[in-house]
C-alpha cells in the first residue's frame, strides 16, 4: 500500500516536471521515449484543433482526422525539428499543410466559424471590430454575424493571416514560418487583408441597412 502511494506520488511529480519542460526539451525526451510525446499532444491539441477549425470550418470528425495525421507526422519528423524555429511555428505549419491538403483531397468548402465562446475568438472580433467604423453598431450579434460573413468572403490567404495574427496571437516571424512567406510579405498581406475586410464589412453593413 505504502509503495503504491509512493509510486503515485512519483508519477505526479514526473507529470508536474513534464508540464514545466519547454517544447524543445519535450522533443528531446520524445525522441528517447514516445510516451513523452503525449505531453506535446496535450499541450497543442486544443490550440491546433481551434486553428484548423478557424481556417477550414470543418466538422469535429474531420478535424480529428487532421489532428491525428498532424501529430503522427510531427512525431515521425521530430528529428527534423531544430531550435532555429519555435516548436509552435513548426507544428502550426504542419497543421496548416495538413488542413489545406485535407480540404484539397475532400474538396470541402471553407466556411469560417467566428461565433464561439472562446475568449481568443472574441478577441479576434474585437480587433477586427476596431478596424472598421462600427460605432453605429449596437447589437453584438449583428456585428458577429456580419464579421463572419465578411470573413467568409475573404480569399484564403487573407483569412489565414488574420486568424494567425488576431486569433492565435502570433507575431510576424511566427506567421512567416508557418505560411512560409517573408516577413515583409506577411506585413503587406495583413494590411491588405484588413483593408479587404473593411471593404467587405462596409459593403455588408450598407446592404444590411438597405435591407433593414
Amino acid at each position: 500500500m505504502m509503495i503504491s502511494v509512493l509510486q503515485l506520488s512519483d508519477r505526479r511529480c514526473e507529470m508536474k516536471n513534464l508540464k514545466e519542460k519547454t517544447d524543445s526539451e519535450l522533443v528531446m525526451l520524445s525522441l528517447k521515449d514516445p510516451d513523452h510525446f503525449g505531453q506535446l499532444v496535450d499541450r497543442y491539441e486544443k490550440k491546433l484543433s481551434r486553428y484548423a477549425w478557424r481556417i477550414s470550418g470543418l466538422d469535429a470528425e474531420s478535424l480529428e482526422d487532421i489532428l491525428q495525421e498532424t501529430f503522427i507526422k510531427t512525431y515521425l519528423n521530430l528529428n527534423d525539428y531544430n531550435n532555429d524555429f519555435s516548436f509552435s511555428s513548426w507544428i502550426y505549419k504542419i497543421t496548416h499543410n495538413e488542413t489545406v491538403s485535407y480540404l484539397r483531397k475532400n474538396k470541402k468548402l471553407i466556411t469560417v466559424p467566428l461565433e464561439t465562446e472562446d475568449e481568443k475568438q472574441s478577441s479576434l472580433i474585437e480587433v477586427l471590430k476596431n478596424e472598421i467604423d462600427v460605432e453605429a453598431e449596437t447589437r453584438q450579434r449583428d456585428i458577429v454575424s456580419r464579421i463572419q460573413k465578411a470573413m467568409d468572403m475573404l480569399p484564403d490567404k487573407y483569412r489565414e493571416v488574420l486568424v494567425l495574427r488576431y486569433s492565435e496571437d502570433m507575431d510576424y516571424r511566427e506567421i512567416s514560418d508557418i505560411l512560409k512567406m517573408p516577413m515583409g510579405t506577411v506585413a503587406t498581406t495583413i494590411n491588405r487583408a484588413k483593408e479587404k475586410f473593411k471593404e467587405v464589412a462596409k459593403k455588408m453593413h450598407l446592404n444590411t441597412q438597405n435591407d433593414g
Partner: peptide, 23 residues
C-alpha cells in the same frame, strides 16, 4: 481520446521518428 488514439497508433505500429540522416 485523441491523445490515446495517437499514442496507441505509435505503439501498435511501432513507429519511430525518422533518423536524423534521412533529413
Amino acid at each position: 481520446k485523441l491523445k490515446a488514439k495517437i499514442m496507441e497508433k505509435i505503439r501498435k505500429e511501432d513507429m519511430t521518428p525518422r533518423p536524423r540522416w534521412h533529413f
